[in-house]
Design a protein around this nucleic acid. Structure first.
Lengths: 153, 153
DNA sequence: ATCGCTATTGCAAAGGGTTGCGATAGCAGG
DNA sequence: CCTGCTATCGCAACCCTTTGCAATAGCGAT
């Protein structure tokens, strides 16, 4: 009996990246080797990556990779919703890969660790700004600094 | 009858900047013309400033101002608590002048405006991270992005 | 007033990120 | 398969910020 349906996209091997080429072309853009390289790199990773890391990974696959092209392709992928950019604690670019659940980040100035803000916790923050100011927060863009439980002076 | 006591530091003309030179020297650092220039610029402003603006203002008073010196002096002033740095929505450096009450910032991606997060609102956020994760937030370092009440699609 | 110690400066270079522009190359159509 | 339109590329230049280093100059002591 062959498997009817894969339980999840991950198990089936199918991923949003498979559609990337199609979606790009469907939007009137072109499917180029440079974009292919970046998509392959992104497909192999998850979570967060800095732009610098991505450029390095692309260069492993293609020595001729240029930063400007990577940044421009990332902008395009962001328009398609495949990545989302934000700023780390030091202000550098950071990309969320396949942002299924929006989440923010915490950075501990004591130990340098980072955590994702859990949905429940994020909700409280979003809620507070929404009800008090009518402001709709995009938590994912930001890294909040502070000290974690283990680093209090 | 001479005035007994000024009602506030602001009315008396006294300001934390008056002590800047003293405090710098008391800490074993030197009071240089370059530092004097930056302190004068900061004394004349309030709220937030970008590093680039500060450099421009310093150069108005002293054509020979160098960026690296301004950045280094800002670091020093931050150690003394006279300014506090953070990152704007685009990741660029921003300085809070005389941070008496710690506050974060909101940036609207719709209209580009920024607001300070009021203490009550900030408290909710700080509280949420503290009670749920034991994380002590430094709100002042961050600019949170989103859409304000007037910019909802 | 001079001396010496060393904090500070200015420069130059480097890294991250963005942008304008001429040359290249997708891709739709013939 | 060839052609042409134009999206995309790679380059060079620029802005912001940081850092190493040699030269300068505070400032406390003589």
């Amino acid at each position: 009996m062959p498997p009817k349906q894969p339980a999840t996209a991950a198990e089936s091997g199918a991923s949003p990246w498979d559609e990337a080429a199609e979606r790009i072309r469907a939007s009137g853009f072109r499917w180029t080797p440079q974009r292919r390289t970046l998509v392959e790199v992104l497909r192999a990773r998850e979570g967060h990556v800095t732009a610098t890391e991505l450029i390095a990974c692309c260069r492993e696959r293609d020595q001729t990779t240029t930063p400007s092209t990577v940044y421009r392709t990332l902008d395009l992928l962001e328009d398609l919703g495949l990545v989302k950019h934000g700023h780390g604690h030091d202000g550098h670019e950071e990309y969320h890969i396949l942002p299924q659940q929006v989440h923010g980040h915490l950075y501990c100035v004591g130990c340098g660790a980072t955590w994702e803000i859990r949905p429940e916790t994020g909700a409280v923050i979003v809620e507070a700004l929404a009800s008090q100011l009518g402001f709709t927060v995009d938590l994912s863009h930001v890294t909040i600094s502070g000290r974690c439980a283990g680093c209090h002076d």
